[in-house]
Design a protein around this nucleic acid. Structure first.
Lengths: 379, 379
DNA sequence: TATCCTTTCGAAATCGTTTTCGAAAACCGG
DNA sequence: CCGGTTTTCGAAAACGATTTCGAAAGGATA
């Protein structure tokens, strides 16, 4: 059956579904006693149309809910009015609100513009490029948004070479400037580690995702900065990476805790990994947050609900989605890429997993008892 | 700045971004020494083209990566080749993989077809209809997919009246048939409750989402069926509803546990609610899974990670997304709606939250220690 | 071989919009 | 009132594909 879904069967199928024919621009124009060109110009805000005429057109359009058919518009304009948002390997992030949050922000910012978002998901990291190429070469999108940049990101190289407008969530080591917005993850590594130092820890480990991811790379740099600043020698055995999942975090923690001189605190780059870390700590007979401190990285909502509640960092994913769209519009309008680069500084959200255990409200039990009072979020 | 984003500024902006001109069908046809019509027909699988010619065309198209420009195709065909997927009130489901899973399934099934998915998110339940109307009346989509049906769903009425092809995830009380796929949530209520009865419980409560949601309604029916089957009198005070969030679950549990004769077990319609329920049980000084049994409803991945691990039901959201697309294609091809209705039976995933506490692997600690061995999932 | 039917192809119309360019109208200062 | 400038509008030509319909070629039959 799947193979029977040929292009031809699809096209013939369409004929079966009827639908009332909508108002075309020419018909609408005739109604108003104007030419199609004038109506079009009125709607599109061109200068060469009398203010009075324009008002009349817009009023009638609003009254009759008239909107120019996007199909005609697109053909003539040679633009698809469509922005592609690429999900990378969604199966790996199944329980993470990251992409959906970002998508929501994007959709919000696009409200009222003629643009729409199409999503495309890359089956695997290897097939990511494929996804971009298809979107671009088949003229399905005017611009692209995506996240999870890598240090050396072929997608960025491709889009730049192909001159496709885009905004990335995340920096890279590209020598050419491109519009992007990023969270400063050196802060996540640095401030997380520094907090443990301030709490008296000396043997502090870091668990992150794959280091070819730019944000992971930054986290690792930040961690080393904090150590250096405190005069603590960097021990490579304490900095491990694994995949960005709960299991990855657990596995990495197992490696760390199995060492002869295990760490007393672990900073994580990702909250799901932190969850796995906490699970592994418990499995080893230790108490997360008491025997071994844990700090996460991206404020997964589940972090507030577990026990001990996870100390983490603000993420602002939805706001980032919104901002990416604004930057894209600016980019399309000609603003140079150098002016379209923002780095947001995340803030620590202090809960309980990062230090000696505080008396919990219902300390006998295993599920977080209430939202911690000490939580501090950014405005 | 936001208000400066007029249609006109956008359109002029576009001119700024250049791009190599791609191969048009006429140019491609000329290359082959054929007419555009023949090439088009070859590609679209029409009958009146010689097998040899068709092979030659398809080969060349593959070699040169030629694809007919969707814009022209859409204009002529009077179809957008686009399917709308509507997210309802995403902010309420922030941490739930439901929508992203479904989206992934949809995208998978659409691979290789000329269709693409656009997503639209309804700001609030009240503005849901707005979203549908805009999508349809502005010709942005050929068909629509959506989830979370209500008992009496105006979206379904609208789409049926407007003759827009669609597939819903969830049944409703519509008298007219429409294509849909659904999980049988009476099973969630029934089997969950029955399990507690089998474990010896007699005072069993149910916490669900708002009862105007169809799946919630089914859950509530199933719960009463199980009670009736066991000859236990239904106590309305034990069946409460709240919003579909962790907080909602906690609040509802608070109400139940505050009663003079509180329940010894609680079946939930939704895993996030179950999480809140467990939190409230702990907050009341009781042990979830030991003093009060808890069963969830839709296999949120976090359920396997908490302690005690949450007994729940299979959800198969991604598979459902795939199947919805297949059914939509069938519907477009003329298959009557009555043949496009499926109800899938969820299966219990037994972990630990539903019964007397089993010895945990690292019983001192507060985070689940390992994936439970007893977990049983469907094939 | 003539006739008819089938197969295969292409010319031309069409989808609905935007845009260019020219013409008419209105306005202006002298 | 006139020449020149500015506004305002509309006719017509795109944009790139699909589809209808007719014609040519090929095959079969009498």
């Amino acid at each position: 059956m799947e193979s029977g879904l040929t292009l031809s069967s699809l096209s013939r199928a369409r004929a079966a579904s009827p639908a009332r024919k909508p108002l075309s621009l020419v018909a609408f124009a005739k109604q108003l006693g104007l030419s199609p060109s004038t109506v079009s110009k009125a709607i599109n805000g061109r200068a060469d149309v009398n203010a009075k005429t324009r008002a009349r057109v817009l009023e009638a359009a609003a009254a009759q809910q008239f909107t120019p058919d996007p199909a005609g518009r697109r053909l003539r304009r040679q633009a698809s009015d469509t922005i592609g948002f690429v999900l990378s390997a969604p199966q790996a992030h199944f329980a993470h609100p990251f992409f959906l949050d970002m998508l929501t922000g994007i959709d919000e910012a696009l409200e009222g513009t003629p643009y729409q978002t199409i999503i495309a998901s890359a089956r695997s990291p290897e097939r990511e490029m494929e996804c971009f190429v298809r979107l671009v070469e088949q003229h399905r999108v005017d611009a692209v948004l995506f996240a999870r940049t890598r240090r050396n990101d072929p997608r960025i190289a491709y889009l730049l070479a192909r001159k496709v407008p885009f905004v990335a969530f995340g920096r890279s080591e590209s020598t050419k400037a491109y519009p992007c917005i990023d969270i400063d993850h050196t802060v996540v590594g640095n401030a997380g580690c520094a907090r443990f130092i301030a709490l008296g820890h000396r043997r502090i480990a870091q668990i992150t995702g794959p280091s070819d991811l730019m944000f992971t790379h930054h986290q690792r740099l930040g961690y080393r900065q904090a150590l250096a600043h405190a005069g603590i020698a960097f021990d490579p055995a304490l900095q491990v990476e694994d995949v960005l999942t709960e299991e990855g975090g657990a596995r990495a923690a197992g490696v760390l805790l199995g060492q002869p001189n295990p760490p007393t605190a672990i900073v994580c780059g990702h909250d799901l990994m932190a969850l796995g870390v906490m699970r592994m700590i418990a499995q080893r007979g230790l108490r997360p947050g008491t025997d071994v401190g844990v700090i996460g990285g991206d404020n997964h909502p589940i972090g507030a609900l577990i026990d001990p509640p996870l100390t983490s960092f603000t993420a602002q994913t939805r706001e980032a989605g919104r901002r990416m769209v604004q930057m894209l519009m600016a980019s399309l309008a000609g603003t140079p890429a150098k002016q379209l680069q923002e780095v947001w500084v995340p803030e620590l959200i202090v809960r309980s997993s990062d230090g000696p255990r505080r008396p919990a409200l219902a300390s006998e039990y295993r599920i977080a008892t209430a939202k911690p009072k000490r939580e501090r979020s950014i405005a």
